[in-house]
Every structure is written in C-alpha cells, then in structure tokens.
Computed example of a mutant assay.
Amino acid sequence: MTVKHCFVVLLACLTLSACGGVDPDSPLGQRKAIFKQMLKTSEELGGMLRGRVPFDGPRFAEAAVQLDALAHEPWKHFPQVKESEQTSATDAVWQNQARFQALARELEAATGELVIASQVQPYQASNLAPAVQKVEDTCSACHKAFRNH
C-alpha cells in the first residue's frame, strides 16, 4: 500500500469514528457529563470510607457539597420526550415521570443529609458511612428502575 492509500484509509477510519458521538451540548451529553462527575465524586467519598483512598475529613466535606450540587443538575436535562436511542435511560423515564422525579428528589435529599453529616467534627468515617450508604442506595434504586445496564 502506498502512503497515499494509507492516509486515505486512516482518514476514513477517523471520520467514521467521529460519527455517532454524543453532542456535548445536547441534553443527553450534558446529563452524561453530570452523571460522570457524580460518579467520580461518589467514588472518592466511598473510597475514603472503604480505605481505598486515605480519609481526609475536610476533603470529604468538600466533596459532599460538590455531590449535593451535582445531584440537583441532571434532571433539567431530561426533555419531556425521549430524544435519542443512545441514552442509557429506559423508556420508563418518560412513561413514569412521577416516579422518576420522586427518586430525583430522594437523591437530592440524601445528598443534602450527607452534607449535614459531613459538617460534624471531629470527622469520623463511621459517622459518615450511613449517609453515604443512603446516597448509594438511592442511586441504585433509580438505576434499577430507569437505566439500561
């Protein structure tokens, strides 16, 4: 194969790999970005409590505030009508909006409780574990009901 042919094949591969991506400015792209940030933050919190990451009380409290702020954001990026087949959300999100919104409010409440728990000093992982567990359980309940795994 000549250099020209290799270049054409490479260009075609790059062009095709760009197709089908999610527009980061779309509702789907925006909520995916928020959910990724939520996952990263919650993994840090859980890691501190489970010993995978050194426990740092002030950092834990800061991350709890970040998670609480993020927990209020993705819901506004779910349009009234399903916009894409690329979503991990099931059709139930749009068919059972009342339950979906109720679980969203439960998550917001759970992260708010986590913020309150994370402000109690001295920082003790044992005091924070139930609040983190509640957040994780709330996330899990929503995923079971409304997410294609």
Rank of each mutant, 00 (worst) to 15 (best):
A104N: 15
L70Y: 01
G57F: 13
Y123P: 02
L70G: 04
V132D: 01
R50Y: 09
G47L: 01
F78K: 04
E44F: 10
R105F: 04
S42R: 09
V8L: 15
Q124C: 02
C13E: 00
T87K: 09
P24G: 03
P54W: 12
R99Q: 15
G51C: 02
K32Q: 13
G112L: 06
K82S: 15
K36C: 05
D23G: 01
H5I: 12
A110W: 05
V65W: 00
L114I: 03
V8S: 04
A117K: 03
W75D: 04
S118C: 08
Q101I: 12
P122M: 12
R147N: 03
V22G: 07
L39D: 14
A33E: 03
Q119A: 13
A104L: 11
G21A: 13
S17A: 14
Q124I: 03
N148P: 00
V120T: 14
Q86V: 06
Q101H: 13
C142R: 02
E62D: 14
G51V: 06
H149D: 14
A117C: 05
C13S: 06
Q124D: 08
N127W: 05
L39F: 14
K36G: 13
S140P: 00
H143N: 01
S88R: 15
V22E: 05
T87D: 02
G57W: 09
A63L: 10
L45S: 02
E136H: 03
Q80L: 15
Q124M: 10
A92K: 15
L45F: 08
A33P: 03
Q95P: 11
E85F: 11
E113F: 06
S118Q: 04
P54L: 09
